[in-house]
Amino acid sequence: MEVLILLIAASLALAGGFLLVFFWATRNGQFDDTTTPAMRILTDDPPVQPAPASPLPQNPQ
């Protein structure tokens, strides 16, 4: 039954990892806006017409 110790360590590490991910996501503001993403998917990939002359980096953060 001593193998349980290994399993417990593994499960705690996994759960702890998820907790850390949750902390990171909250701090990162992923739960700040829960309305707009639901609307955004409705307009994903609209048929884009020829874009204007000066394309810009879309993700300058």
Binding site: D32, D33, T34, T36, M39, A51, P52, P60
Partner: peptide, 14 residues
């Protein structure tokens, strides 16, 4: 697409 100086814009609908 309307102004070359604008990078990214994000809406918070709520």
């Amino acid at each position: 697409r309307l102004h070359p100086g604008i990078g990214r814009s994000r809406v918070n609908f709520a």
